[in-house]
Design a protein around this nucleic acid. Structure first.
Lengths: 226, 226
DNA sequence: AAATCATGGATTGTTGACAATAATGTGTAT
DNA sequence: ATACACATTATTGTCAACAATCCATGATTT
C-alpha cells in the first residue's frame, strides 16, 4: 500500500512500510531473526534510518528486540491470537456504535456498495481466500474510520489489524464461512443505516466472536499450526 | 519508574523513558516543538539513539512528526480526551472481566490491600490530587495486568494510560469524587473476588463512564482549558 | 566424556560529519 | 505599504566509521 500523496517520505518511513508488509504478507516468518545489515542491503539504505524503522515496528509489537542480540519477528501463540480477537470484539463494537452515530449518509452508501462488491467477489473467486480476507478487511477498515474516533481507528488500523492480517494470510481463516460473514456484515450495515448504535455494537461483537470461535475450532480440528 | 533489573539498557531506551515521563509530567507542554540538538544536550547523547527514541514515541502517539519539520508534543483536544475515555471504557471492561476469571487469590488479596492503602491516602492527603491520581493508576494497572491478556495490558499500560496521565497531571481530574471512586473500586474488586466477570465488566465500564462525565462537566463548568 | 571457561568473530549500539529540505529574513516590484 | 520572490540559515535526514556487547567455537579441566 504505497502512499501516493506524501512525497516528503523519508527512507525510514519507506523501510517501515516495506518491513510491515513483509511481515504481514509472510515474507518474514514469525520468530525469524533478521540481521540489520541484511535488511540494509535489501532496502538500499544504511543502518540509521533502518534502526529508526525497527524501533517503530518494535513499538507496535510486530518485532521483539533483545538488546545487543538483534530483533526477530513476533510470534503469536494460539492463545494470544484469541486474546487479540477478544480485544477486537470490544473495540470494534465501540467503532460500530460510534459509526452508527456519526457516519455520513454518503459513507453508508459506500458501505452498501462495498458489500455488493464483496458479494460478487465471493461468488467469482470461489474459495479464493485472499479476496475474502481483503473484502473483510475493507469492511472493518471503513467502520473503524467511520467511527470518527481518531485514536480508536489508529489503534485498530495501525496496531491490531496488522497483527490479525499477519495470521489471516497464513491461515486463510476468513474462509469457511464467507456467506455467513457477508450476511453478518449486511445486518451490521443496516443497523448503522438505521442509526441504531446499540444494535450495531451488539451485532459487531457477535460477528467477531463468531470469527474467533471459527478459528479456534479450525485450529483444534485441523491441527492448524500457526 | 526506572527498571532496576535491566542493565543492558541502551541509550535509546533511556531517552525514550526520559522523554515519556517528561511529556507525562508536563515538563514538555502539548504542542511544544522540540529540536533534536536541544534534546541531545539535555540527555547527553547523540542524534542517532535520540531519533530512535523519537520514532518510538511517535509510534505510540505521544509525539507527532512532520518530515523535515521536526517533532512536537501531541496536543489532545477535549473531544479527543473524551474519545480516549470511551476506548478505556470498553477495554478496561474487558480487562475487569478477564481479571475476574484469571486473577490468582493472592493478586486479589493484594488488590484489597491496595484499596485500604488508597483509603488512608485519601484521608491523609486531603485534597492532594496527586496521590489520588497515583492510587487510581495503581488500581487500574493491577487489573490490566491481572487480565493475563498480554496485548490488552500492553495497549492499556503502554499507550492509553500515558496519554490519560498526561492530562491527569495537568487537570488533577481524579479529584472531586475520590470517595465515590474508591467505593466504585471496592465494588469492582468484590465482583472480581466473587469471580463474577460480567458484573466486574459492567461496574468497570460504569466507573470509567462516570469519570469521563465528571471531567466533561468540570471542563464545561470551570472552563478548564486543556 | 561432560561441563566449564576463554578467545575470536560477528553483530549491535554509538558517534560525528555530510547532504537535503523547509523555515526565515531581506529585498524588490507593484 | 503590501505582497511576492529569492537567498540564507538552521534544522532534519542520511551516511560511513568506531566502540561495545553478545554468540559460537574450541580448548582445558574435572
Amino acid at each position: 500500500m504505497p502512499e501516493v500523496i506524501s512525497q516528503p517520505y523519508t527512507r525510514a518511513d519507506e523501510a517501515f512500510d516495506c518491513l510491515q508488509t513483509a511481515i504481514v504478507k509472510g515474507d518474514l516468518s514469525p520468530g525469524e531473526k533478521i540481521g540489520e545489515v541484511e535488511l540494509c542491503a535489501r532496502f538500499n539504505l544504511t543502518r540509521g534510518p533502518l534502526r529508526e524503522a525497527l524501533g517503530r515496528l518494535e513499538s507496535r509489537g510486530l518485532l521483539v528486540r533483545r538488546p545487543h542480540a538483534g530483533v526477530k519477528v513476533v510470534s503469536v501463540s494460539t492463545e494470544e491470537l484469541m486474546e487479540l480477537y477478544r480485544i477486537r470484539e470490544v473495540m470494534e463494537g465501540l467503532a460500530a456504535r460510534q459509526a452508527a452515530e456519526r457516519m455520513t449518509d454518503t459513507e453508508i452508501a459506500d458501505l452498501y456498495a462495498t458489500l455488493d462488491s464483496h458479494e460478487t467477489m465471493i461468488e467469482q473467486a470461489q474459495g479464493q481466500a485472499y479476496y475474502q480476507a481483503e473484502g473483510d478487511y475493507d469492511f472493518h477498515h471503513r467502520i473503524a474510520t467511520g467511527s470518527r474516533n481518531t485514536k480508536l481507528a489508529q489503534m485498530l488500523l495501525g496496531d491490531l489489524y496488522y497483527m490479525v492480517r499477519m495470521y489471516r494470510y497464513r491461515l486463510s481463516t476468513a474462509s469457511g464461512r464467507p456467506h455467513m460473514a457477508l450476511g453478518e456484515h449486511r445486518r451490521i450495515v443496516e443497523a448503522i443505516a438505521q442509526r441504531d448504535g446499540e444494535l450495531a455494537e451488539f451485532l459487531m461483537k457477535r460477528h467477531i466472536n463468531a470469527a474467533r470461535q471459527n478459528i479456534e475450532k479450525k485450529i483444534k480440528e485441523g491441527g492448524l499450526t500457526i
